[in-house]
Every structure is written in structure tokens, then in C-alpha cells.
């Protein structure tokens, strides 16, 4: 049972991290940088780095069973939750709500982060009382 939880946590980190890293540049594109580079571009760059970090954490969880525990789930949940602050507060994006970043890219980032945080918190809750193998 612990093994399944570990794999779910690792795969969630890898898949959602990958979406965070490449999503704003491919699937849910942010504003165009053809004319000038806006704040949303830097937000998405920061999110890309965090996406890569999450993928690395996921790979570590997948390869090293000892890292599959409540603490790593909570740390992933915290990373997902803090990622929300990058476009919403720390760096921000275009002020106009009709721009592509505010309309599509940022909402998708928020949704991915909420899903990731909820999954990791549920797994962390399930780990409570379990002894490390």
C-alpha cells in the first residue's frame, strides 16, 4: 500500500511538474513576447524552473523508496501551493484581465498547483501512522 502511495506521489510530481514547465509555452500559452517582454513572461519562466524542480523530486521519489514518505509529500504540496504565489503575487502578470496570461495561462497554472497540492496532502494524510519500510 505504501508503495502505491509513493508511486502516485512521484508520478503526480513528474506529470504536473512537466505541465507547469512546458504548459505556458505550448498548451496554455502566455502573452506574446513579439513586441515587448511583459511580467507574465518572467512569471512563466519562474514556474518553468519550479516545474523542473518538481520533476526532479518526482524522479527521486520514484528511484529511492526511502524518499517515499509523508515529509516528501508535504514538501511537494508546499511547493505546489507556493507556486501559485509566483503569478498571483511575487512576480505577477499583465494588469488587464483580458490578456492571454490572465485569461488562460495563469488559471491553468493555478488549477495544476491546486490539484498537485490536494493530491500530495491526501497522500501525506494517508501516510500518517505508517512506518517507513
Amino acid at each position: 500500500m505504501n508503495k502505491t502511495k509513493g508511486y502516485v506521489s512521484a508520478i503526480a510530481d513528474i506529470v504536473l511538474g512537466l505541465l507547469l514547465a512546458i504548459g505556458p509555452w505550448t498548451i496554455f500559452k502566455t502573452c506574446s513576447t513579439a513586441e515587448k517582454i511583459m511580467k507574465c513572461y518572467y512569471s512563466c519562466r519562474a514556474v518553468l524552473i519550479i516545474g523542473i524542480i518538481l520533476m526532479v523530486i518526482g524522479l527521486i521519489k520514484l528511484l529511492f523508496k526511502k524518499s517515499q514518505n509523508m515529509i516528501t509529500c508535504i514538501s511537494s504540496a508546499v511547493i505546489f501551493a507556493l507556486t501559485i504565489l509566483i503569478p498571483s503575487w511575487a512576480i505577477g502578470g499583465c494588469a488587464n484581465p483580458a490578456m492571454a496570461c490572465q485569461k488562460v495561462a495563469f488559471p491553468c497554472i493555478y488549477a495544476i498547483c491546486v490539484i498537485g497540492a490536494v493530491i500530495q496532502l491526501i497522500l501525506a494524510w494517508k501516510y500518517r501512522g505508517c512506518k517507513d519500510e
Binding site: P97, A98, Q102, K103, V104, P107, Y110, A111, V114
Partner: peptide, 9 residues
Amino acid sequence: VASFIFNNA
């Protein structure tokens, strides 16, 4: 949550 996040879209 979805209607709040995707309000603009």
C-alpha cells in the same frame, strides 16, 4: 474553485 480560477476565460 474552477469558476473562480477560470473566471476570465
